[in-house]
Design a binder for these strands. Structure first.
Lengths: 225, 225
DNA sequence: GTCAACTATATTGTCGACAATGATGCCAGC
DNA sequence: GCTGGCATCATTGTCGACAATATAGTTGAC
């Protein structure tokens, strides 16, 4: 079980960022990560290289790696691109849609509702991004999938940095609306619902977001294990 | 001069792919790369991790890294996203446009013409992608820039795999048309010209029609399953 | 009391070596 | 002659150690 590949480690860190246990600006010390995951620093460096290329962490020479701190303009760009990508995902998805996939979607939304009812913040965040990721995966488009992975990671970073209230999340109701349109085969309506949904999420963000202090790295990474 | 950072190495390899000196499916042996760049294998692995995350190389455990081989669907997705991203670039660019930037653009196109006249394939390829990269850089949008870098790398890979004739390239004339619209401040026309340009490039590819020869025996035999 | 320089520590950058795994070529057996 | 197994080799996966650099804490002078 210690046989975690570099990809898997990256996945874990990405998840920690997506779930906002790792906040923007947080330092990522190599030795600490190495100990947490029980691997050597060399592999940690490999993983950090991946994440840096992905834009989730920034690193300065001889200073180390930090969770990236996106700015407002980047945020707007990212949501702009998300609109395009996710609409494409919907197009692709429509071709490969079947009953089992639709069932999986409604099951997912149901989970979102439960998490909402229980006010389980971490689950809410994870599931919210997860819904969009699920759609991309179901579309069976590798490139879009990777891109969405990137975009959702960054979006989580952005909401962590700029979100106005802790309460808001990628609402289950709007997700359900998208599913409804998918079920009825109305591509146009589904795309419109998606666009509206993303607009809504973007609107919930505020321009000037002061950063919060960071907890311990270990807690952040092992919190959800 | 031996002080090449990992990023710079990645840049060099990316360029080699963009210039199609590294072809899809080509093997990237770690020791070889290490010797070529005069660095240790550890750093090579770091670089390969970056490129893998970027999607330019694929790697299988215990088998090594290879230049990625994009498939047709990926190609279509990538061009779809490029349309969106580049239109966003144009929007962003319009705000920050000045005479010096326009001059740089026409100078670039002039270089393209020269390369065309001399039939310098490598220069043509490099400059063609370079024009789009230039626009992204001028837009001063880090995220879009990184994304464009990714997309252009992949596009080069795609053209290497699917291009119909060696003659075609990202034509200087169409680039110039975009510049013209930018100069006159007509965002809509510029975006339209860009869309048309990308359509043209995509059409030049052999994306529909016969598939390439199967990569493996298994694919050949089980292709219809 | 404050600032500057210096030292000590912590952290990152780089490398070579060893272990594990897949690929290649050879040889015996049928 | 061909097939299957085996030994050899090449290549990747992983690691710990050492050097270079930034950070922070301390001491001393003003």
């Amino acid at each position: 079980m210690d046989a975690l590949t570099a990809e898997q480690i990256a996945e874990r860190i990405w998840l920690s960022i997506a779930e906002r246990r790792l906040r923007p600006g947080m330092r990522l010390k190599e030795a600490e990560l190495a100990e947490v995951f029980g691997i050597s620093r060399a592999r940690v460096r490999q993983v950090l290289a991946m994440l840096e290329r992905e834009g989730l962490v920034t690193s300065e020479v001889n200073k180390g790696a930090f969770v990236a701190e996106p700015n407002v303009e980047e945020a707007r760009d990212i949501f702009h691109i998300r609109r395009s990508v996710e609409q494409r995902v919907i197009e692709r998805l429509m071709d490969r849609l079947d009953e089992s996939k639709l069932d999986a979607m409604v099951a997912h939304v149901e989970q979102e509702r439960v998490a909402n009812a229980e006010n389980d913040q971490r689950a809410i965040i994870k599931l919210s991004g997860g819904f969009h990721m699920m759609l991309a995966e179901m579309a069976q488009a590798d490139f879009l999938c990777g891109l969405m992975r990137d975009l959702i990671g960054r979006s989580s970073l952005i909401t962590a940095a700029f979100r106005d209230s802790d309460k808001y999340n990628c609402g289950p109701d709007e997700h359900e609306e998208i599913i409804t349109h998918l079920r009825s085969g109305d591509v146009k309506a589904a795309k419109k619902a998606m666009a509206h949904h993303l607009d809504h999420v973007e609107k919930e963000l505020r321009l000037s977001g002061e950063r919060e202090a960071a907890k311990s790295l270990k807690d952040a990474l092992l919190g959800g294990a």
